[in-house]
Computed example of a mutant assay.
Amino acid sequence: MLAVESIVDFNQTSLLVSLLFIAFNPVAWNIVAQNEYRNKTITRLFGGNARYGCYFLAVMIFSFGMFRDSLYHRALLDQPQHAILPAPLKTIAPAVLFLVGQVFVVTSTWALGVTGTFLGDYFGILMDHRVEGFPFNVLRDPMYVGSTMSFAATALWLERPLGLFITVYVYIVYILALRYEGPFTDMIYSKREESRAKKA
């Protein structure tokens, strides 16, 4: 059994920065998106063009996501290294985990499109119907699950046990974010259906 001090170096600032940024991203985008739904702040910045506003937010979310990943990678490199899996699993398992995770992320984005992936419904860009094909017929939130799998794969590949604990933290953050994101999105589509029913 590894002692705590042998798997985590609390003196590394990169660890705290990574943890803060992992939490910042979903919280920030939920706040920004809900503000957009109520006040159309970003849409107004683009002269009333909701689609341009959504594309702008998509670039911001993607860029901050890449930055978050780089901070996580940096934080892991600053932490103690220990063998987690025996050879050849120590290379095969993280590679497969990362590949499957990325398949979930990429196919989710493909199925939803840019506006469906990057909170277009908060801009009033609603999908005609719920996406039920792969990977949504396998997982309810494949993008979040795929992202979490990639965090775990990185920890296993770099042989940083702390990364597996951070992965659990990532998943908890996603679950909490979904508690706000899911019901709010459902409310948006419910209002559309009510509006359609009144016009019928």
Rank of each mutant, 00 (worst) to 15 (best):
A3G: 08
E5F: 01
I7H: 06
I7T: 04
I7P: 02
Q12H: 10
T13W: 15
L15E: 06
S18T: 11
L19F: 08
F21I: 07
A28P: 01
N30T: 08
V32P: 08
Q34R: 15
N35P: 02
E36F: 07
Y37I: 05
N39V: 12
F46G: 05
N49G: 02
A50D: 05
A50I: 05
Y52Q: 14
G53M: 10
L57A: 06
V59E: 09
F62W: 12
F64V: 04
H73I: 10
A75R: 06
L77D: 02
Q79V: 09
H82R: 12
A83W: 10
P88C: 04
K90P: 03
K90S: 15
I92H: 05
I92L: 15
A93Q: 04
A95M: 13
L97A: 03
L99H: 05
G101Q: 03
G101W: 03
V103Y: 02
S108L: 03
L112D: 10
L112R: 12
G116T: 10
F118R: 10
F118W: 15
L119M: 13
L119G: 00
G124E: 10
I125Y: 07
R130M: 07
G133W: 05
N137R: 11
L139E: 03
R140A: 14
M143I: 14
T148P: 01
M149C: 11
T154P: 05
E159P: 00
L164G: 08
L164M: 14
V168M: 13
Y169V: 04
Y169W: 14
I172K: 05
I172Y: 04
Y174N: 14
Y174M: 13
Y174W: 14
L176S: 06
L178C: 03
G182M: 03
F184R: 13
F184S: 09
T185L: 14
E193F: 10
R196P: 00
R196V: 09
A197Q: 09
